[in-house]
């Protein structure tokens, strides 16, 4: 792993020094053992702090939005990060030429407390970056997850009441900090429906009905675009099983509109934003 760190530092520094990029997004060591935190390098000297190990839990692509006015942005990308980049390009957040991607095949990230593979990484199908300008290290053989929708089983196959109980249990403890939205590479609306206070889609009171409304609308809103990175669930301070809901919706999208993975390219036809005569007509 340390040789990736070395190459990453060298390449990021070289790219900043020769003016290819104006900033570089990666990870640095945190205060605690096995803790990392996103690092945004604005100066070539900052690149010496970059690291890459199996505890780089953050998906960092969303920072490109904050930095793009500075010029071309370098990003260290694994599978999930690269899909997030593709997703945001497709959603017109920036253009492919606005980013310079250093691809890193992902060893799968670990939970720093338990040392075991993070939940969000367990059913990952794309550990190699799907798009990059340079690949650091050897691409690895991808292993398809045993069951792409394993997480959805928490809710799929249950009757309405049982499913509702699970949602209620989860959203009862939601504190509406919006970390799931703020970390999500699909959540790029200029004004989130939550913040449209004058329209009043959502009340500000924290209670089950409003929380559930927030969580479900957000899930539906990203249902044909979710890149399955699992950042929402990792970021959630209250441990809501958000990926169970997202994976269920991804499963539905695949069943209803055909095999589909978001963020693999930048010219996907998103199921809910395109029309096909072969679309399933459930209401005939």
């Amino acid at each position: 792993m340390s040789d990736i760190t070395t190459t990453l530092r060298e390449r990021a520094r070289a790219l900043m020094e020769d003016g290819t990029i104006a900033a570089f997004i990666g990870w640095e060591a945190g205060r605690f053992e096995r803790q990392t935190t996103p690092l945004i390098c604005l100066d070539a000297a900052d690149t010496d702090r970059l690291i890459f190990d199996e505890y780089c839990v953050n998906t960092t692509a969303k920072y490109v939005r904050d930095l793009k006015q500075r010029g071309r942005i370098g990003v260290a990308v694994r599978g999930c990060d690269s899909r997030a980049i593709n997703r945001m390009i497709e959603d017109n957040q920036f253009k492919r030429e606005d980013v310079y991607l250093l691809g890193i095949p992902c060893p799968q990230m670990n939970d720093r407390k338990t040392g075991t593979v993070l939940n969000k990484c367990q059913d990952c199908a794309h550990r190699n970056p799907v798009t990059y300008d340079e690949l650091l290290g050897e691409a690895m053989e991808e292993t398809a997850p045993q069951d792409r929708y394993a997480r959805a089983h928490l809710v799929s196959g249950l009757d309405r009441i049982a499913r509702q109980n699970i949602f209620n249990m989860a959203f009862e403890r939601c504190i509406r900090c919006y970390a799931c939205r703020d970390v999500c590479p699909c959540c790029t609306c200029r004004t989130c429906f939550v913040d449209q206070r004058n329209v009043g889609w959502l009340g500000k009171q924290d209670n089950l009905s409003e929380n559930r409304f927030y969580g479900m609308i957000r899930a539906f809103h990203i249902s044909d675009r979710c890149i399955e990175c699992g950042e929402c669930e990792r970021a959630c301070p209250m441990d809501l099983p958000l990926m169970a809901i997202n994976k269920k919706l991804v499963e539905d999208m695949n069943t209803l509109f055909g095999e589909y993975e978001s963020g693999m390219t930048t010219d996907n036809e998103d199921a809910l934003r395109s029309f096909s005569k072969t679309d399933l007509e459930e209401f005939e």
């Binding site: 935190t37 996103p38 690092l39 945004i40 969303k62 920072y63 904050d66 504190i175 509406r176 900090c177 919006y178 970390a179 939205r181 703020d182 970390v183 009340g203 500000k204 009171q205 970021a235 301070p237």
Partner: peptide
């Protein structure tokens, strides 16, 4: 730079006391 501007820190904080007033 790295802040997401979510409200996690303020909601888990024992001393953060800011509130908003609204009606239903």
């Amino acid at each position: 730079y790295k802040c997401l501007n979510c409200g996690t820190c303020t909601f888990v904080c024992p001393t953060c006391y800011c509130f908003d007033i609204d009606q239903e």
